[in-house]
Amino acid sequence: MGQGYLVAKNETLRDGIVKKRPVDNPKKAQPEVPAVSTKVLIPLSGDDVAPRFDLAPEALVAVIRGDGAVVEEKTIILPHASAEALCNLILTEKVDMVVCCGLEEEYYQYLCWKKVKVIDSVVGPYTRVLDRLSQGNLASGDILLDARERRFSKR
């Protein structure tokens, strides 16, 4: 631990605890982020996008560079699940884009009004969401589970 991740700044100001997530590729952990980058927040439940925005126990904040490289990842454990708290976090973190699953119209409109791009009804693990975002082809309603993950277990 220690070399493969970035320590997020000013995390102590928030109520939440900050977990540091190692970045797989050390080459990606560049301290300087180019100007053309997108900060993405994904409400999480385990390693998947949380089924509901307002009930997510944690959130992943990642920065995706213009060339598609994910240069920063951190997971924030929320003190309590709340859509308002999450919206507040999105604004304080200056997030550009939110990728989530179930989101109420009220919060969708609020985030749009605050110029945050929202991609909702996305199902799948966050790693695949980041891959798709890097490729620039993620849309609302995308289900990022392959056929193997959709197979039923037989008893």
């Binding site: 439940s45 509901r52 009930l55 589970l145 959709r150």
Partner: peptide, 19 residues
């Protein structure tokens, strides 16, 4: 057609799904 094989919490998205 689009949701066959998906865990039900992502389809129903109820307030009880996570807890």
């Amino acid at each position: 057609e689009e949701v066959a094989g998906i865990p039900c919490c992502f389809v129903l998205r109820s307030s009880l799904c996570l807890h």
